[in-house]
Amino acid sequence: MDIKDIIKPENIVYQKTKLFTEKPLSYCPGCGHGTAHRMLLEVLEEMNIQDKTVGIAPVGCSVLAYEFLDIDMQQAAHGRAPAVATAVKRLMPDKFVFTYQGDGDLAAIGTAETIHACNRGENFTMIFINNGIYGMTGGQMAPTTLPGMRASTCPFGRDTEIMGNPLKITELLAQLPGVYYVTRQAVHTPNAVRKTKKALRNAFEYQKLKKGISFVEIVSNCNSGWKMTPNQSNKWMEDNMFPFYPLGDIKVPQLEKV
């Protein structure tokens, strides 16, 4: 059978979702942001809520997300996405609201906003891309940088005696009563991507219940910041990031029995 006979519109099994704009993504080759964007949009498309969704993109590599996602987006100051999302969700409680933040944004500059939004139990979804580095500004050390990991501001590796210990913000937030669902996923292999999609779907389904924050952490690579090729950085992530940031559900709601 010739390839031309296979490549027909009726045989399509997978294509990029229509919710992407035509613009090519500005991310580095191999960056996990693109996959995370696509899974998010596929979930919105499957739930058919793309016209009822408001996304908040703060500063970081994801600052240009509104150029690529064909949904309503709002830009926020660095770290302040949970505050903006609180306002949007309180004024428009019928909308699905999510924030899409990196580790420097959510765990460093916006720690106060993050913790208090979670503690108040606002009803939106937080998507947290953790790559252990400030990617956009040139690979500086972030709160999530692992001990011994090199970054442009700690070129000999993070020394915990001087620079402190990495922050497991996801475990920290899971203890707050206002947080309903917490999970940690990755997007480096097909299996991990499928699990991430399921987690995002759960997060948006739980948002309907109005019981608090649903929080999805996605451990991602930053091959430019880590100075590796994309496949090397995925391997490095498996060997070094996953022992410290283990994948899986951290807080799963006990559904009430009817």
Partner: peptide
């Protein structure tokens, strides 16, 4: 085999997959 693994991990979503039975 049209398993869509490549398209699912593609960060830029540039791969379209076709599958048919022979």
């Amino acid at each position: 085999t049209g398993c869509v693994n490549c398209a699912i991990v593609c960060p830029d979503g540039v791969i379209t997959v076709y599958r048919t039975k022979v």
